[in-house]
Design a protein around this nucleic acid. Sequence first.
DNA 1: CCTTGTGAAATAGTTCACAGCA
DNA 2: TGCTGTGAACTATTTCACAAGG
Lengths: 213, 213
Amino acid sequence: MPLEIPEVVINRLPVYYRLLSRIQGEGRAVVSSQELGDALAVTPAQIRKDLSYFGRFGKQGRGYSVQRLTEELRQILGLERRWRMVLVGIGHLGRAIASYHGFEPEGFDIIALYDADAEVVGSTVSGHVVRDASRLEADLAQEPVSIGVVAVPAEHAQEVIDMLVGAGIQAILCYAPRAVQVPDHVELRQVDPVISLQSITYHLTRTLEAETP
Amino acid sequence: MPLEIPEVVINRLPVYYRLLSRIQGEGRAVVSSQELGDALAVTPAQIRKDLSYFGRFGKQGRGYSVQRLTEELRQILGLERRWRMVLVGIGHLGRAIASYHGFEPEGFDIIALYDADAEVVGSTVSGHVVRDASRLEADLAQEPVSIGVVAVPAEHAQEVIDMLVGAGIQAILCYAPRAVQVPDHVELRQVDPVISLQSITYHLTRTLEAETP
DNA sequence: CCTTGTGAAATAGTTCACAGCA
DNA sequence: TGCTGTGAACTATTTCACAAGG
């Protein structure tokens, strides 16, 4: 396995994994890169090349064992264990995240909720008593957590992230709609539907223009 | 302006726009590509090159007028008008989306909610009476809407998308955690925090291994 | 015959480095 | 002097195309 695997490849692996999980649920035993590519609108060559960074999982003339490939991807992505997360910011968005049922079946557990607002601290949300954000550093020293989920307003996102980083967090999933900075050793992903919409409208604007000359 | 602007460039423009809006709110008049790059962790050359696809907005020796560049990006991205969206799927996730306050200030209006569940249809959510999903095609024929937001369970996402596409929708923002297919002329963006987490864990797994040899 | 795995070729995207202008 | 805009150089990523295996 080469040491430097392109980031763009790594970002596609979860997509493959998702699809394979579904195919496995449908009871299929074998799948070809062609079929995977058709379902994902990517070329079969890309899928084969991506997988080849990690090993030789297919059988010539047959394709890939769905079970085998799903397991390999679980292994590669580190999904054989559960991951603990803390959620900071228990407003509208934070509550929605806390009650989202998509994390747990995939191995991601929100183990504690934090907020800075005294009105919210102490209340119970999705079965957790909301803790004071000032306790973050002490709590994480006590029992480390890998991933911080940030759902505070944009204007507080950077300070909360600095706090999480100071407390030793290794990765951050940030829902706040703004650019934030983290040190190199911290993984950052942003979830921002408005950014997605704004690249959509770029295209829609031009489609509209083309139709109305 | 060249005809073929790389998709990757277009996807960065909303990020620049976000940052510039903030800088403008702070009252700054001028900003350099160096400063923008520092705030976004990209090279100044990349920002200059990206912008150069669309025009020459800067002043040598000075930088960019924040006001001018913000306006140019609004124009380029099609953000000078408001965009109408319909939301399909009024479960937990759909309700959170319906009540999310981040769309409206950026010019995105959810104008109608749809669900297939008779229990939900007719109820009022975030000020809208939920309509029956079977009315989608007729409603969109009556008053066209550009963007469909899909928040139904994974197993229904493809059929809902097919329905929206059949009704003439031009773009889809899909929150359902699965791969879906749309025709070439429809813009698709997926919002999927679990996919983001699964590329995070790839890296965390390796960081952990490196620390524990 | 079918489909993988993979070097090599082709494309795409990023960064450099500097002329040119305020 | 300081910073943009941009060809050219470089680097990354994708696709091709085919040998090899079942």
